[in-house]
Design a protein around this nucleic acid. Structure first.
Length: 84
DNA sequence: CGTATGACGTGCA
DNA sequence: GTGCACGCCATAC
């Protein structure tokens, strides 16, 4: 599985440094599709990989958005890493 | 192959 | 400042 786009998204998310958050839009842009932020969230939702710090990916509003382990845990991790 | 959905983003009321 | 609706891409069924 994992099409080229999804792989790119994963790669970008993996490149996010600790204590640094990126919006789905930013990830989509770096992935090569500035208007695919929709697909970005979708891919992470169905293909969330353990090596992907998707908890560092937040919405443009700064909302935690969603998380496979619960938005609460996501927020907690961000706070712990210093991104919040 | 075609339709519907989704961890979004922006605009308007 | 908050809530609703529309539009976009990729994936799943």
């Amino acid at each position: 599985m994992k099409s080229d786009f999804s792989k790119k998204v994963i790669e970008v998310v993996k490149k996010i440094s600790k204590g640094h958050t990126m919006s789905y839009k930013e990830v989509a842009i770096l992935a090569g599709s500035p208007f695919a932020f929709r697909a970005v969230g979708n891919i992470l939702n169905k293909n969330y990989d353990k090596r992907i710090p998707c908890h560092r990916v937040v919405r443009s509003d700064g909302s935690s958005g969603g998380y496979n382990r619960g938005s609460l845990q996501k927020m907690k991790i961000l706070k712990k890493e210093g991104a919040l």
